[in-house]
């Protein structure tokens, strides 16, 4: 796909079923812009985005929304409706503007709320929630769509460590069940738990690699001006990478 000239440029990449990709890069690299283009919210000035082999702009809005869910960076959402009603909006593409919520919708809502652990404040108003609680509600809204493609922009912002881990676990499960997931992440340790990394800088996709490639680690350190170090840990026989700042 190709992005707008100013923000992202000359990018060609694909996201498949079962993929879980972390999009990383320094501030202003164009990560969020790329995600907006992938979600069909911003039209690229050149090039195209394909969803299931069909140009994204050719998809009817509601069908596209059933197949593809996008979570914005927090900040824009504001209102006095309850947390559960916010999550229920995720079912809007399925039941339609004038339809009613059925048993399958209720189940998807309950499941998404349980996954992000926000069931216990389901009746509280969005505006009364803390930053982390609000983020979990908005995340549950995106999960409740139960879409094939899940695009999340900074979903771990405001989340404490246990909820960050829970999010990563639930993303991994959904990818294993066949969803295609791309997440913009600032936290590189979390990003390195993904299956693949798209490393971006200055509006370009520098590298698309699996997380265990040494060349990717070298490129990450280079893009972040040597301000990070990547260490390898072994835990229960599995390899995990920890990124720490170099001060």
């Amino acid at each position: 796909m190709r992005g707008t000239q100013a923000v992202v440029n000359n990018i060609s990449a694909s996201l498949h079923q079962g993929d879980w990709v972390a999009i990383v890069g320094p501030n202003g690299a164009g990560k969020s812009s790329l995600l907006s283009i992938m979600a069909g919210l911003v039209k690229p000035s050149a090039g195209s985005v394909q969803l299931a082999g069909r140009n994204l702009s050719k998809w009817p809005g509601r069908e596209r929304a059933q197949r593809l869910a996008w979570l914005a960076q927090q900040g824009e959402s504001e209102g006095d409706i309850s947390a559960r009603d916010v999550v229920a909006l995720g079912r809007l593409p399925h039941c339609g503007l004038l339809g009613t919520i059925g048993a399958a919708d209720e189940e998807a809502i309950n499941k998404a709320m349980a996954e992000t652990q926000c069931t216990h404040f389901a009746t509280r108003r969005l505006n009364e929630l803390s930053g982390g609680e609000r983020q979990r509600v908005l995340l549950a809204r995106a999960l409740a769509v139960e879409s094939d493609v899940l695009l999340l922009d900074e979903p771990t912002a405001h989340l404490d460590a246990p909820h960050q881990s829970a999010l990563i676990r639930s993303v991994a499960v959904r990818a294993n069940n066949g969803a295609a997931i791309a997440i913009v992440l600032h936290d590189l340790t979390l990003a390195l738990t993904a299956k693949r990394i798209w490393l971006m800088d200055k509006g370009k996709l520098l590298m698309d690699a699996t997380t265990n490639e040494p060349a990717l680690h070298a490129a990450l350190i280079d893009v972040f001006d040597g301000a990070i170090a990547i260490e390898q840990l072994e835990r229960n026989g599995a390899i995990q990478y920890v990124v720490r700042p170099v001060i």
């Binding site: 069909g40 809005g61 593809l68 914005a72 959402s77 809007l92 503007l97």
Partner: peptide, 18 residues
């Protein structure tokens, strides 16, 4: 429900296919 969706912000409401 359009007004409910707008609680999420313009872009998110648009992403719901409205």
């Amino acid at each position: 429900r359009v007004l409910d969706a707008l609680v999420l912000g313009e872009a998110s409401a648009g992403s719901l296919g409205l």
